[in-house]
Nucleic acid binder design. Sequence first.
RNA 1: GCGCCCGUAGCUCAGUGGACAGAGCGUCGGCCUCCGGAGCCGAAAGUCGAAGGUUCGACUCCUUCCGGGCGUACCA
Length: 543
Amino acid sequence: MDGCWLILTGLFSIYLFLQKGNSTLLRGSGVTGKKSMYELKIKEKIEQVTGLDDIKLTVPPPGFSGDLSSNAALASGIVPQKLAEELNGLDEVEKTDIAGPGFINITINGKALEDEIKEILSSPALYGGGEKKGKVLFEMVSSNPTGPLHIGHGRGAAIGDSLARIFEKLGYDVFREYYVNDTGNQMQLLGESVRCIQQGKEVPENGYRGDYMKQIAAGLTSSEDLSKAAGEKILGMHFETLNKFAVEYSSTVYESDFIRAKKVEDVIEEMKKRDLTYEKDGALWFRSSSFNDDADRVLIKKDGELTYFASDCAYHIDKAQRAERLVNIWGADHHGYVERLRAFFKAFGYAGKKRMDIVLYQLVDLKRGSEKVSMSTRAGEFVTLDEVLDEVGKDAARFFMLMRSSDAPLEFDLELAKEESSKNPVYYVQYSHARICSIFRKKGISFEDISPSDVQGLGNEEREIVKFLAHYPVLLQKCLQLDAPHLLTDYLRQSASAFHKYYDTVRVIGSKQERQRLALLRAVKEIIKDALGLLGVSAPEKM
RNA sequence: GCGCCCGUAGCUCAGUGGACAGAGCGUCGGCCUCCGGAGCCGAAAGUCGAAGGUUCGACUCCUUCCGGGCGUACCA
């Protein structure tokens, strides 16, 4: 029976290899040519030997030896002994054990762990980073300028900006763009609302009101193009808020410019030429249902006006011409637009050539303790991003926005975010950084006084924490691959905890191993600082 | 009706097929002559919404159903 099973799985593995072999080759190696970063190196080796695409290394469960564990032999059908042998050939591997049905448990040797710290200390900002890669264009927030940004926009900004920082770290040439929807009914309505307020009349039923509108109306004269002028003012407010939130854009583009420059017309002409459109009921339609969308979509309304979707097509063509890869950060309430945009991409032949990620994030529920905070948009009583920033500060706001997967709704507790205690994860993490800084102050040396040569030998206490640090480069790749910056908040919490635990059991200043322990602490500090930086959160030296 | 997301410990959530399901908060119980106690250690707590299926192996993939959110415009 066993023999039979082996033959079958063997055949299956050949099948898998044939299936997956190509994509592995295409992916290209050389994620990093660096000498250290053993976890990445082992990962690449396993992928090379098994032909698997993106393998996962785990930590062996309690009771098993080893520092890292892989199920790749099982998953690929390769004989575990063969893979283990290949791994034993790596300098970083002390030994391997085969356990259970074919898990390979890998023990890292002491030298590799030391080298890892040396690598961190020699160039902290570069550790875990990548080589030069192509241009990526991020589009985020892109609210129409009719009212203040609310907390949901904040989530989009935090996800987009942090993901952008991760892309930058990994070598991509990143651009952050703000697309302004400054045309259409909403903008007309904005102009009318301003006029009504100025004339002391009742604002139209679906119009804009609230304190911000009174201020804007007061700052404009009636002779201006009220819609345009008000839009510009509100856009200015948006950027002010985003600035406070540590989000900076490289460019701003206006929907109206695309229309004025006839780019939207051009795209529609091109679509007509390619027979992607038809006329019905006086409107011009795009055959998006031929490209996996639920229904066809209107490009030009029967009144002759362009739809938002039409200019969005023009905008995305423009973006695709400027970058190799596009990332759009959208609220989940826009998920209905994903397929139509993808349909357009397919129809224009971009689908296979340019990668376009659309990250959807679920809504934010604001709470104050156990009490829900109303976010009704009516009468302008919603909680703005500005108000949240003023109340809890940039660091807490950014961190909290990134604590959850973008797929999950986010519960944002204003009370917790303000709390200066270990209950608050931001403080917990920042505290670990400040505490390490304090140790160096106490010792009276600077971080630069510690160099790679101070790393000499590691005890068992150190091993655990080094393994944790060594995982950072792999984690960053995972964040990028899954468009999931929230993984960093969890990693930071665990890093902080690993440090506190270590510091609780080991004496640093005054011990025989003082120098090397300080070296380890500096490495921890550098990783925490770097990771916080990617989240847009500060790493204070004192609190 | 149809589509997308979610349903995991009292609460908020991690877990992109693998070895006995994890964390934080909350609850209960320990640890300060010592480098920041804004810290550490331990305990209790789960039929992973339900039922089928695929697999050597399913919280993870497929189908159906039940809950909740969002979307289903010639609005943006």
